[in-house]
Amino acid sequence: MPAAATMSCLVVDDQQTIRSLVRSGLQELGFKAIHEASDGEDGLRHMLSRPINLVISDFNMPKLDGLGLLRAVRSHPPIQKTAFIMLTGRADKELVQRAVQFGVNNYLVKPFTVATLREKIEAVFGTLH
């Protein structure tokens, strides 16, 4: 896994609570550059205005949901190769399956522990070329 401190993360969720929880988990893992966006469109704007290495995004959000954001990311070459982890509630197996079709790199089920967060991030960045 690359040094967490060198990576730039974007947390996309319409709930400040969840954003703060993910942020605090990421900080514990040594991430320094953590950005927040409150919906998919806001997230996309962030991604177009600065380099982001990892997106952790909720699914159910106003304006543009997590799947929409994922599809937009995957279809736009400059940001296409950004790692994408989808946050889901329980019982959302179908959703994860759809996200997999659209090229999600992993998923994280709420509520999560810092250990799970680490596990999922490592799973993604372990596949680095």
């Binding site: 690359p2 040094a3 401190a5 060198t6 990576m7 290495n53 990892l54 190769k81 950004t82 790692a83 329980r90 019982a91 959302d92 197996k93 994860v96 399956q97 997999v100 090229g103 999600v104 790199n105 992993n106 998923y107 089920v109 993604v124 960045f125 596949t127 680095l128 070329h129």
Partner: peptide, 26 residues
């Protein structure tokens, strides 16, 4: 309505893809 459990989800085939990540500090 039962809460789904992650345990019976099985493994997802995450599409292998190259991910832009900094290998060293910029």
């Amino acid at each position: 309505a039962d809460e789904g459990s992650e345990d019976d989800w099985g493994d997802f085939e995450f599409k292998p893809m190259s991910v832009d990540a900094p290998d060293e500090p910029a």
